[in-house]
Write a protein that binds this DNA or RNA. Structure first.
Length: 269
DNA sequence: CCCGTGCCCTGGCGGC
DNA sequence: TGCCGCCAGGGCACGG
């Protein structure tokens, strides 16, 4: 479940490791990950130099000589750099980028996606054009007006990448805890002050998580040297049955919008 | 337009 | 020990 901090950590490592390399060939071993014609995909990438690695919300973007390769890791997507060695059964896309060096896209659940877009249009076309701002760039009043028109649980709204981008299940639970807001509060009942506090909390949590290299929990383990330490900072997520670090009330786990949700029933109103 | 539900996929785990 | 069924969940298609 890479969210903004995990994707940013991967971006920084990829930037250091593969920028300047040239893609010599690409093997696609599980086609549904690629969201465009396979032969066109392979042809577009052939002999392209990797110029830069960008990130928008939870999307990674490989800036190539002529194209942008837009990647979403979804639940378990990760990259490994390997020499010539046998393919692991969960490696679905293999980029040959040098003398016996391969960059391998590994995804146990095969939920990840890749799109090819032109350099001129990639920000203005799907999927990047539908992304809301990241919390650090969001205008709280605009978000407040947006939320005020909806009647959904605040947790559902924070997970909606069209409203704000970058937050996933872990950081939404932590953001709501820091803001002292119950995950089921309806968005049309939030005050301006609460929305300002929410965005500020999200920003604080994400920047701290980026500084610590993200979280490494459950199935999302190390890739390309990604060993996050933010999981040690979690206050509520995965803490069901443990005391709230603020008031000592036992943290409860519920479901909100189909997602496992952790919260303090006393602190969060 | 708006919101809730189901689906994609596989490994891990609880129950028997 | 082995098998079965369920759960995890980001984002989208679909239906009420």
């Amino acid at each position: 479940m890479p969210e903004l901090p995990e994707v940013e950590t991967v971006r920084r490592i990829l930037q250091k490791e593969i920028v300047g390399k040239t893609i010599q060939s690409v093997d696609v071993l599980y086609e549904p990950i690629v969201q465009s014609d396979i032969s066109q995909f392979k042809m577009s990438l052939n002999e392209e130099k990797i110029v830069n690695i960008e990130r928008y919300g939870k999307y990674l973007v490989f800036i190539l000589s002529h194209w942008a390769l837009i990647i979403h890791l979804r639940m378990e997507g990760k990259f490994y750099l390997k020499k010539d060695e046998p393919r692991d059964k969960h490696e679905h896309i293999i980029f040959r980028i040098g003398d016996g060096i391969t960059l391998r896209y590994h995804d146990v659940r095969k939920f990840g996606t890749m799109h090819i877009r032109s350099l001129e249009e990639y920000k203005e076309t799907y999927p990047l054009n539908v992304l809301g701002p990241e919390p650090k760039d969001a205008d709280p009043i605009t978000i407040y007006h947006h939320l005020h028109k909806k009647k959904i649980a605040v947790k559902t709204a924070l997970l909606d990448q069209h409203i704000l981008s970058g937050l996933g299940n872990i950081y939404v639970d932590e953001t709501l805890f820091l803001s002292k807001i119950k995950p089921t509060r309806r968005t049309d009942q939030l005050t301006k002050k609460e929305v300002i506090h929410l965005i500020d909390s999200a920003q604080q949590i994400l920047s701290k998580a980026v500084a610590l290299g993200g979280s490494t929990i459950r199935s999302y383990t190390a890739s390309l040297g990604v060993h996050g330490r933010f999981q040690n900072e979690l206050n509520v997520h995965t803490k069901a049955g443990e005391p709230c670090p603020v008031c000592g009330t036992i943290i409860i786990k519920t479901k909100v919008g189909g997602r496992g949700t952790y919260a303090c029933p006393t602190c969060q109103k």
